[in-house]
Nucleic acid binder design. Structure first.
Lengths: 299, 299
DNA sequence: ATGTTTGCATGAAAAAAATTTGTGCAATAT
DNA sequence: ATATTGCACAAATTTTTTTCATGCAAACAT
């Protein structure tokens, strides 16, 4: 059911997403002719052309770009609005837009997969959307309402959001099989030795201790897989979450460096805007996350 | 033109505002019968009853109350959305919702009336809405988007809003004709004498100096007129803006107390959310306010 | 009590709006 | 040159919305 539907805007967004009228037919379930009329009506109402189309290809106009962005936003709000009104009865429905950082699957203490399963097992008709991004970006998207909840190691917490501590993640420094340090005895490896080599940085985190912070890192990655790949080249040292290394049974390909001295923990939080808790779907998901957390800490 | 119109919700809100179907006919320009069908459709879509109606009177249900509040909010957003898209061509249109504190008309350095006149003289088709409330309330409404701009002596400024200094307002302490202090010579009046009498407080401001702050004030008002009225009873002393007293030619009815020692100034700011400046109407209004301010400070 | 008025519901008819069908046109690909 | 693709448009059709006419029940007046 759609309460705050709007054919014109939905058509516009669908057409842009499909890159033209022809494909949007199937997405919208109406004929190309109807689409043509709708876009014409939209443009008449707005008083300007939103896109160039025809055999020459499909392209948004300058104003069309702005209108598209705004239209997508308002349609998202409209979906959330619908969900809020519908959830006044007891059904759980609407969007649930979750943001996470990457490599969260193997975080045992969180057990993201199980949480999702628990949530979905209620057999509700929630439309799930999972976005992977950096903590900074997740914060931004929470504020704009693009996300309902996010799970990440939030370092700088903003006032508009509420954070709930979830679990710890342990990071250690690794090197690959081809790296000079791979076969060196433990007692020969100290901070001085390590700091002689290139360290690959995580773009959004400041995990590595200050003394190892290279002034001008030669490699920066925004993804855990990419970090592991770079380390495996043997050209870089780099920090990785322990659970990530173990789960990939890469133990043979990577070596921990100075495990006693070099390990950092980052704290994972669940973040959300208070207003989102009015949404039943959000409330239930948060409940599931916390239940999972407590199940782990109780042991 | 309405782009993101929604007949069902608009009908619902209109019906609530009109207190029933019969009056809403004229507000909406459709027959009572059509309204009946629309409300029925809305309730079918939502799955619950939003209001009780009939000869017994009109009353929102519990869920209806919530739905009404949400519907009004989303319709407001929808109007703003329309305006944003329409203003991509060069017309200035849509809502302009301005918040001010009371007794702002006589604030000469601001000249609110002239600013409004300047704005309206552009003969645009902006729907103006002016809300009078306390600074705290104005701040709240700016954040929720209920207001686009506000002019008030904002004391605690929040991060989400941007403030621009406008002008100063001078306050002094006054007493009414029937007050014991009205005829006392100047040199007999000092802080000690004054603090022996009841002082009427402005509910939202902390203007009166700490030493005169009664621990348990006997009178609190949230309105300048009310403050003046109370002072005129002769039972209270109270602070008033100088321009306010002068403009009402109340000079004879009120007396300044210790004008040299007891005067406070509050600073007026223009506040807005950065996002609102995307609206042409808002941008132009802000421009007008600042132009008026500069015209005064230049002299 | 009884009749009247008020406020809303409902079915049928009418009006309005949106969609499909069928076709044409222009730019591109073959 | 011919076929194809992507869209526009007019007429016909379907769907939705509104009005009209009427009914009903609760409140009100007498």
């Amino acid at each position: 059911m759609k309460l705050l539907r709007n054919a014109l805007l939905e058509t516009f967004v669908a057409v842009v997403d499909c890159g033209g009228f022809t494909d949007a037919q199937f997405a919208l379930g109406i004929t190309q002719s109807a689409i043509s009329v709708r876009i014409r009506d939209l443009e008449t109402a707005l008083g300007y052309r939103v896109c160039e189309r025809g055999r020459g290809g499909f392209r948004l106009t300058e104003r069309g770009e702005i209108a598209y962005a705004k239209a997508r936003d308002i349609l998202r709000s409209a979906r959330d609005f619908d969900a809020e009104l519908l959830e006044l009865r007891d059904v759980t429905t609407g969007d649930l837009r979750i943001g996470v950082v990457d490599a969260i699957n193997t975080l045992a203490d969180l057990n993201f997969g199980t949480v999702l399963k628990t949530f979905l097992d209620r057999s509700n008709d929630v439309r799930l959307e999972i976005i992977v991004a950096s903590p900074t970006e997740l914060t931004q998207r929470l504020i704009t309402g693009e996300l309902h909840v996010a799970i990440a190691p939030f370092r700088n917490q903003v006032a508009d959001l509420t954070y709930t501590k979830l679990c710890q993640e342990e990071h250690r420094l690794y090197c690959g099989r081809d790296h000079p340090l791979f076969d060196l005895p433990h007692d020969k490896i100290d901070l001085d030795v390590i700091s002689g080599y290139q360290i690959c940085q995580r773009s959004y985190s400041m995990l590595v201790s200050p003394e190892l912070q290279p002034t001008d890192p030669k490699a920066i990655v925004a993804n855990m897989e990419a970090m592991a790949t770079l380390i495996e080249t043997g050209h870089y040292l780099g920090p990785l979450p322990v659970h990530f290394v173990e789960s990939r049974s890469q133990s043979g390909k990577l070596r921990e460096l100075a495990p006693n001295r070099l390990h950092w923990t980052s704290t994972f939080y669940l973040a959300t805007r208070a207003i989102n808790l009015h949404r039943r779907a959000v409330e239930l998901f948060v409940e599931d996350v916390l239940k999972s957390r407590d199940a782990h800490t109780d042991r």
